[in-house]
Design a protein around this nucleic acid. Sequence first.
DNA 1: GAACTTTTTGCAATCGTTTGCATTTTGGTG
DNA 2: CACCAAAATGCAAACGATTGCAAAAAGTTC
Lengths: 339, 339
Amino acid sequence: MNDNKLTLAGLAKLAGVSTSTVSRALNNNPLIKKQTRERLQALAKEYNFSLNRAASRLRTQKTNVIAVILNLTDSTDQSISDPFLLKVVGDLNQALNYQGYELLLSNSFMATEDWANYFIKSSRADGIIVIGQGKTTVKIEKAAKSGIPLVVWGDPKVDANYAIVGSDNALGGYLATKHLIDVGCQKILFLGDPEHAEMRERYKGYQQALVEKSLTNDDELVLSCDITSKAAYAKIADMILKQGLYFDGIVAASDMVAFGALKALKERYIGIPNDVCIVGFDDIAMAELFHPALTTIRQNTKVAAKIMVEQLIKQLNGQIADSAVIDIELIKRKSTHVT
Amino acid sequence: MNDNKLTLAGLAKLAGVSTSTVSRALNNNPLIKKQTRERLQALAKEYNFSLNRAASRLRTQKTNVIAVILNLTDSTDQSISDPFLLKVVGDLNQALNYQGYELLLSNSFMATEDWANYFIKSSRADGIIVIGQGKTTVKIEKAAKSGIPLVVWGDPKVDANYAIVGSDNALGGYLATKHLIDVGCQKILFLGDPEHAEMRERYKGYQQALVEKSLTNDDELVLSCDITSKAAYAKIADMILKQGLYFDGIVAASDMVAFGALKALKERYIGIPNDVCIVGFDDIAMAELFHPALTTIRQNTKVAAKIMVEQLIKQLNGQIADSAVIDIELIKRKSTHVT
DNA sequence: GAACTTTTTGCAATCGTTTGCATTTTGGTG
DNA sequence: CACCAAAATGCAAACGATTGCAAAAAGTTC
């Protein structure tokens, strides 16, 4: 009906006041008499008025948008569908909305390499959340150096000049490995990509547990593979073919990796957990549903998302943000429950 | 270093030309001499210049942003982590970026009910993609009525005044059921939520197949439950407790539902596929990894995302968009492979 | 009711691009 | 070299909200 877009000026005319009054009224500015404020707000509702954000963003130099970047390793576009990463996105979406921000989703395959320029200086967003440190942190460091509000999901123990929120990956790797040792495993594989920041920390925890229990820390026990189930499946299948079943436990760098490994094992009628025990990482929804249910290290993404948003907002307010370690938890399930 | 933000005017001064020239040059407008264009583009790169989007959006009345709304049923916030929906988001992200658009992610728990107002009239986005028709399409219809560019992921056979892209769900339900009958199932459950638009169509296909093969179309074979694995698990566990194993096949409304059902069955040592065969829907990554690998109806989300974006762009150009049916495919795996 | 404070409103500049139109520059031709 | 068409550039007015400051209105006090 009212197709000629209604602007603040139009609404002001309707109400018989100035645009400044309407603007203030809609922003609930106490400068305006309460009675007037309410009248104007009601009028705005009645006429289905909505502020032009482009205009207000231009004027206020604030967008109320946060860019969330899925920082994927360029090789496998598989990982764009990694349920864990997408779950983090979902939780961030809720946490951001809750604080009145909107979420602009991007992945790292964009044309530009210069996130600070592309998102912040261009006034597309007020801040950036990067999911995943990936194999190289060069883009992140570049963004951090330019001083923009930035929070990274990754390994918080990593030394960096930006705020990192994440689980204690080394501890997770340690707990996973220790648990396997406790249930009697002797030859424990680490399956994952030690070049990948978070995975490297999990690997360190794995090593520490082995050393502590004075188990051999053999090179042939470290199986490097992309963190996808497909790669894990191929790796395990290949190793068994070449060397037979020379292990009795697996620390997988993620649940998806664990699932891939499990598939390869089950296809060869290797008993889980009786022949091989396995621990995953993440505790995605599937972990519990899998058969056997997967023992795993749970990452609390809801809490993490909340904290990331808080830390980002601190930066938006000019304070400096801290890295934060999110509690993890070993969830014991059937895949390590030797009878 | 150059902390005082560089604007078009600043760049113009540096180059000794007018702002209009710089603006046109950066937009590759052929009005500007090619040589000048290149010089200015180089200069912009050198000075790390980036256009203020808020300003250009205000001026051009175009945002180059598409809002993607996860239309969740309000009861279970579980489904926000449904891997399938998030996969669609991921694919949309790529398809949109490819066409030069950005993705603003929202869910349906926002304060506002009026999407047209909130996203379009407010100049936050140029168009909307809604993922999921959900149980009620009232918000979608309201948005459609206001004439904004809109595409919905859902069941394209549903009669509506907006463009719907989706799989042929009825055919999917039919194929799934027919396949179960072909492998010898006699008492086939439908497990899902027939109130949910897409699921209802799958249910219709299920019915059709039963009728065609003159199998009983018994009410007690239709198990209504939320489309989460948790609900499916509870439902199956409950039914077996009450009625014993009175079925030998399951058509699950989604893969996640299938996984929940499988967990309940396996816990009771019911053989899959020998005692009960099961077919899922979606073909998420896990379907193949599950044990036994899950027979399912594959939805091609990559193609779907591409088409949705195309249809939306048509609307942005003033053309009208059509609904589109995406090809589906029955993927036969172990969960229906009776020996 | 004058003088003054406090509350409420309005004026007008501003944010940084884009673009219709006017103007200048260039180049070709007689 | 005057003239004209074509090409290249510049001027200035938008786009629609916000906000410092000034002005008007309302309230207080003597």
